[in-house]
Design a protein around this nucleic acid. Structure first.
Lengths: 100, 100
DNA sequence: ATAACATATGAATCTTGTTTCATATATACT
DNA sequence: AGTATATATGAAACAAGATTCATATGTTAT
């Protein structure tokens, strides 16, 4: 049933840090420093999270010199987010009042 | 950005118990006792998890006498799982060897 | 009214995931 | 070679979510 793969996959989206990174990368590829700067999270934390996202093929990396540029696997992520957005807009209005 | 709603939504899929329940309900609606029996989880645990799935509109309930029948919100869940399945098959072969 | 069955729920416990801290590696620059 | 910059990583500390236990609620049957 590959239940664990599903689990691992979804876990990467069930995490605020990762979600912010993913939303950020929708605008285009970005290196670690920029992600750190834009999100305000610790560099170390960002790297740890990026690693998991890579392991799951939700992101891809490309090295340029000493920098590493991360981008979305748009095949998967884009349609997925669109689906969830539709669901959230329809079903979760006011569910989470204390949102950012 | 509704980040928290996304988070909450995905969290319901990032959980083995919930995933099993969801996969089970793909076959059709089912009452709590049957879910408990088929999955082997505690009744209490199942109920707690069902509650969260309901709050997120991933499932719907219908009461018949003292039983409660749960079914999938197929609008959302079916296409979502299809997408993830495609991703998992393509990208996660062998990722999770110790799977069920 | 009482007993039996189906499900739900609060609080405590247990588990798992995430962040932090310290440090390592890798590339570029002087 | 030595220093600075960019990113990664292991282990400990911390936080958040899941399960369990005990019990409550709600429905049907006798």
């Amino acid at each position: 049933m590959l239940c664990k793969s599903y689990n691992t996959f979804f876990q990467n989206f069930a995490n605020r840090t990762n979600l912010e990174i993913i939303f950020l990368l929708q605008k285009g590829q970005m290196n670690v420093s920029s992600i750190v700067e834009k999100t305000g999270y610790e560099q170390s934390s960002v790297s740890h999270n990026l690693k998991k996202l890579i392991e799951c093929n939700i992101l891809t990396v490309e090295s340029k010199g000493r920098e590493r540029f991360y981008s979305l696997n748009k095949d998967t992520v884009q349609p997925l987010l669109k689906l969830v957005q539709k669901h959230v807009e329809k079903n979760c209005r006011g569910c989470d009042k204390d949102d950012s």
